[in-house]
Computed example of a mutant assay.
Amino acid sequence: MRLDGKTAIVTGGGSGFGAGIARRFVEEGARVVVADINAEAARQVADEIGGDPVQVDVGAADSVARLAAEAKAIFGLADILVNNAGITHLPKPMEEVTEEEFDRVLTVNAKSVYLTARAFVPAMKARGSGIILNIASTAGVSPRPNLNWYNASKGWMITATKAMAVELAPHGVRVNALNPVAGETPLLASFMGEDTPEMRAKFLATIPLGRFSTPRDLGAAAAFLCSDDADMITGVAMEVDGGRCI
């Protein structure tokens, strides 16, 4: 019960890593808003764990503002914000990624962190406490070919995490990131281009522990970094990757 009495918002909480983080937070005693662009997915996870669903498009300022207002109405100020929502483009040479694909990846993976900061940081600073956790990727540390602009967006998120941590530390707000390797989530097929036994074997060959990241793995790491056990840790981008980045 490391998060007993805490309140948390998890974006992209309707599936994959976000759902795993939301589940673990509830197990640790937190009250959780499950936020997702897919309202039905958010509702299903929220019903399962006893959370509160909110539909949000993290790349749209008005939608993020509504998320902040709805969360405040549900439980007041959030103690924890998890920026988990993310997308990728299909593997292809960098010059073949369309401008529309590029804009969407950077909007969801990068602009969203700026928008949630605008919506939630002022209240955290005024209170003198808060925790922000950004879900980045090993792609931002050790990029894979043909995922160039996705790699870049996650590298941006890692740098943003460190910059936010330095600026917000005097206000009592901690900011960290997690870098999962490709995992058993709805994005796996997009990373690989196609989900076949051969492609899975190729990806797994690059992970020393021999398996993908799972929602359970990310939930455990997130619960630690967002708990008082980690109250001296800020500005860290921790790999949860089975040794992929060694």
Rank of each mutant, 00 (worst) to 15 (best):
L147P: 09
I131W: 13
P145E: 08
V121W: 05
H89L: 06
A110F: 08
S129K: 13
S137K: 12
V108G: 00
E101N: 01
I158G: 02
G130Y: 07
V121G: 05
K154G: 13
K111A: 11
K111H: 07
N134L: 06
W149Q: 08
H89S: 15
E96R: 15
L90M: 13
S129H: 14
G128C: 03
L147E: 08
L133I: 10
R104E: 14
A110T: 14
M94G: 01
T138D: 03
S112H: 06
Y150V: 03
K111P: 07
D103P: 04
K125Y: 04
I158H: 03
W156Y: 15
N109F: 01
K154L: 09
P91L: 05
R144C: 00
R104P: 08
V108I: 14
K111W: 04
T98F: 00
R118S: 07
V113W: 04
L90I: 05
P143L: 06
Y150R: 06
F102I: 04
A126I: 01
L147T: 11
V108T: 14
M157H: 02
E100A: 14
E100Q: 14
A119R: 11
Y150A: 03
E96Q: 15
N134Y: 00
A119L: 12
P145F: 10
E100S: 14
F102T: 02
